[in-house]
């Protein structure tokens, strides 16, 4: 099958696949019209690609120290200069992206399905299940995110894994709330009533009919939250509770270099810029996705 614009945009698709791809293509066309969102998407994707290709693109080993050449200015040999132990900041930034962005991806993969499941079940089942699940959610919501994460990491061993677990633990309640609110309004609709009248069981209704409709707003919310997850991950790294030295995590990089902010400003500033750019890119992307995916905006 040749995939052409006409094939995708036809008003009379001939198969399930064509209909689904046609819908996706239309969403993409709509998304493409928003230049800021496109910028966000491109930057976010390039950051991910750069991190994945770190071994190829790095000019130096991120762990190798060169004490004679510490805190060097950006130059041809060291594009972003060197840090307090003479390590190449550019290479550390690339490898650091793997850790920081990897943590974000891990958190999202843990949090989104958990929040969706809890929210949909609570919203659809109602009654005692709803009260039980939502009170648990409330308990987690009641703690300030960073403090709970700190306490959790401090109780365990500081490191990337416990940081991910800690952030995930504090990040899922808003998604559960969101999914529950969506489910509550969906369950009163006629089309869900029609599915119930086919005789389908509750599990099938939630999984196949309700959850797919909660997904778009959840994706938007997750994308918008990515920046705050990056900041929390970096914050934990900065406080020494995340990735441990000598791992080049962006937040930890700032933490160790903060003493030099006045004299050798580029050393802490460059990872800071990376955090800033990544957060902004995900935020723009999320805003653009909201315009396209938000079910309240299309007819």
């Amino acid at each position: 099958m040749i995939v052409t614009r006409d094939w995708l945009l036809t008003e009379t698709p001939a198969s399930r696949g064509q209909a689904a791809w046609g819908r996706r293509y239309r969403l993409w066309l709509q998304f493409r019209r928003n230049p800021l969102a496109m910028a966000g998407l491109i930057v976010a994707l390039s950051l991910i690609v750069l991190s994945l290709l770190a071994p190829v693109l790095a000019t130096h080993d991120p762990g190798v120290q060169e004490l004679s050449n510490r805190l060097a200015r950006p130059s041809v040999a060291h594009w972003f200069g060197t840090d307090e132990l003479g390590r190449d900041v550019y290479s550390r930034l690339l490898y650091g992206g793997r850790i920081t962005l990897g943590m974000v991806v891990a958190v999202v993969l843990l949090v989104a399905p958990l929040g969706l499941a809890v929210g949909c079940v609570a919203g659809y089942a109602g009654g005692i299940w709803d009260r039980l699940l939502m009170r648990v959610t409330d308990v987690f919501l009641a703690f300030p995110r960073l403090i709970l994460a700190l306490a959790f990491v401090a109780a365990l061993r500081p490191g990337v894994t416990s940081a991910v677990a800690a952030i995930a633990l504090t990040a899922w309640p808003p998604y559960a709330r969101l999914a529950r609110a969506e489910t509550l309004s969906l369950r009163r609709t006629d089309f869900i009533a029609a599915v119930r009248l086919t005789g389908a069981g509750a599990g099938r209704i939630v999984l196949r009919h309700v959850a797919p409709l909660c997904l778009p707003s959840l994706i938007v919310r997750v994308t918008l939250d990515m920046s705050s997850i990056i900041l929390t991950a970096a914050g934990l790294g900065f406080l020494g509770m995340g990735a441990q030295p000598p791992s080049p995590e962006w937040g930890a990089m700032i933490a160790t270099a903060r003493r030099f902010i006045l004299e050798q400003w580029w050393v802490p500033t460059i990872p800071g810029l990376a955090i800033f750019i990544a957060s902004l890119a995900f935020n723009l992307l999320g805003d653009g996705l909201r315009d396209v995916l938000d079910p309240k905006q299309d007819g």
Partner: peptide
């Protein structure tokens, strides 16, 4: 308009 699932063909 309300009795058909908006995301299903």
């Amino acid at each position: 308009y309300g009795s058909l699932h908006p995301r299903q063909t």
